[in-house]
Amino acid sequence: MIIAEQKPLDEIKSMIADYQKVLILGCGTCVTICFAGGEKEVGILASALRMATRLDGQDKEFIEATVQRQCEYEFNEEVADLVKEADVVLSLACGIGVQTMNEQFPEKLTLPGLNTKFLGQPTEQGVWDERCLACGDCVLYKTGGICPIARCSKSLLNGPCGGSQNGKCEINPEVDCAWQLIYDRLKALGKLDLMMEVKSPKDWSASHAGGPGKIVREDLRL
């Protein structure tokens, strides 16, 4: 799932400074689940912005709406009238939704209200952890199902480095050492031989390093 978090209020305020009527547009999928841009967060942000801008002596109007999935034209079409009515759209979707809106409604600027953080797992209520870097060449079958690309600070393929201590990464005692986790898992699975193999440099061209990703399925195209 895409994990995002709201931008600081001050940054949002300065983004919308030149606009009077702002449509705050939430998205009902990933960012709803990660409490960043669902209908509830739209309401909270609208309330905060009404107060903050009033304190700044501005008279702004905030319209609230949420679509099911902001990365799809069909869902966004439902708010076309509201977009028309507004001076600017403040999107609480991930970066994909923001771009979809800009593409779909070129005459109206859509601003990002969130910072899109990572692909992650809601590991417990209120906690989200990065789990995938979308490297395009999954190695999980070699690493006991734990991703060293996303979860090792150095994306090592032949870890753990010398900074692994008590199961934690050297960069932060809150961060698990992915390679300790991999080692423990492989040991439990009786597959420590996978740790002995010198893994070759990774083919990063499958990731963003190879240019913007694109998948085309001719069989599915209309």
Binding site: N158, S200, K202
Partner: peptide, 10 residues
């Protein structure tokens, strides 16, 4: 931005 294209063993 860290690079870490390859690791020390590589």
């Amino acid at each position: 931005k860290g690079v870490y294209d390859i690791d020390s063993i590589q």
